[in-house]
């Protein structure tokens, strides 16, 4: 009974909780905050993508925003050209997924070490920042879409009901769509991690040589995980382009890449809930800090990060989860908080 609850019951409970929040929040939160909240939800999808590849795949990626930005640009460029958003939405998932697969192919199959992998992925996103920034001028056009250099692409058309461009997504609609997407990605990843594929991914993170001696090609599993993470980040980028109706090279910037890493560290690697919680908490604090003049926001955020690394090294969610398990509160609440298994 307990085992079953901990297996699928926890997942069902998490899903129900997510749906309740999704329906309740617009009723109790004021409209201005809803705009903020929608961006948190979108960024949480990005955080989940890094939570997967770093926390479970053990792949140290410092440039997760590269895939986020590619997804956003792929969507914006395609939707300006096509009018209907169905194919652009798919492209925002496929293009960054393929880009991650290609990058991963060269890096994993060359057996690049972790640190170099981190540095190279960071470099890639910074190169994209420069490259997209250098596209100001009327010669840099893809079809009907001017790339606009550092000014970016304004007036990105919103998502529409598949095949019906006149049925555009409202801003409320974007909140629900983002929320459902976040929930679907979360549930999908939890199921994936329970499958054979997910087990092997975690085993490779734990001990790559042993996994290979058991017959698994670590390079392939890492490549696949990385590509899935890239695709998810790209989807978040598409939603982000919808949220701002605008996209610029800033999505590839250092600040964006660093933020994602901070969310995952604060929330806790090795869980899926952690990156979501970390993303919401840090962004909420940043918003509150931005509204006051007393303290420098970046200084406070930096202090919070250092505090976390020193005092709560596992991150919020795993620490709470461990406490719940110790309190024997476990069977009913703890399954919501997946157990973290990272050294």
């Amino acid at each position: 009974m307990t085992a079953n609850w901990q297996g699928n019951g926890g997942l069902v409970a998490a899903t129900v909780l997510g749906l309740v929040l999704l329906l309740a929040l617009p009723q109790i939160v004021d409209p201005v905050m809803m705009i903020e909240l929608t961006s948190y939800v979108i960024m949480a999808i990005l955080a989940l993508s890094l939570g997967l590849i770093w926390g479970y795949g053990g792949i140290l990626c410092f440039g997760q925003s590269a895939f986020f930005g590619i997804g956003a640009y792929a969507y914006a460029i395609a939707v300006i050209n096509f009018g209907d958003s169905t194919i652009p939405l798919l492209l925002s998932i496929i293009v960054p997924g393929l880009f991650a697969a290609l990058l991963g192919y060269f890096l994993f199959y060359a057996r690049i070490t972790d640190v170099y992998f981190g540095v190279i992925t960071l470099t890639v996103t910074l190169i994209l920042y420069k490259v997209m920034g250098a596209t100001s001028g009327s010669q840099y056009v893809i079809g009907a879409a001017p790339l606009g250099g550092y000014n970016g692409i304004p007036a990105v058309p919103p998502l529409n009901f598949p095949g019906r461009p006149e049925l555009a997504l409202s801003f409320d609609g974007l909140f629900y769509l983002s929320g459902v997407t976040l929930l679907a990605v979360y549930v999908g990843l939890r199921l994936m991690l329970k499958s054979r594929f997910g087990q092997v991914v975690v085993a490779i993170r734990e001990n790559e040589r042993r996994a290979e001696l058991l017959g698994y090609d670590a390079r392939f599993y890492k490549l696949a995980t990385f590509a899935i993470g890239g695709a998810i980040a790209g989807l978040a980028g598409c939603l982000f382009a919808n949220w701002g109706m605008f996209i610029s090279p800033d999505v590839f910037g250092l600040a964006q890449s660093a933020q994602v890493i901070i969310w995952v560290i604060v929330g806790g690697t090795g869980t899926l809930l952690g990156p979501i919680v970390g993303c919401f908490a840090i962004q909420w604090i940043a918003t509150k800090l931005g509204a006051q003049q007393l303290l420098n926001a970046n200084l406070v955020l930096g202090t919070i990060l250092i505090g976390f690394v020193l005092l709560v090294p596992k991150g919020v969610v795993p620490t709470i989860g461990d406490a719940l398990r110790r309190l024997k509160f476990c069977p009913y609440v703890a399954p919501l908080v997946e157990q973290r298994r990272v050294p």
Partner: peptide, 27 residues
């Protein structure tokens, strides 16, 4: 490659315990 050798049918226990420390025995 190591995974290929394993698939062909060679299994090894290394000298130093070589296991998945953060997974359960069953896993």
């Amino acid at each position: 490659q190591p995974h290929h050798v394993s698939r062909l049918g060679i299994g090894i226990k290394n000298q130093v315990p070589d296991v998945f420390n953060n997974l359960t025995v069953a896993e």
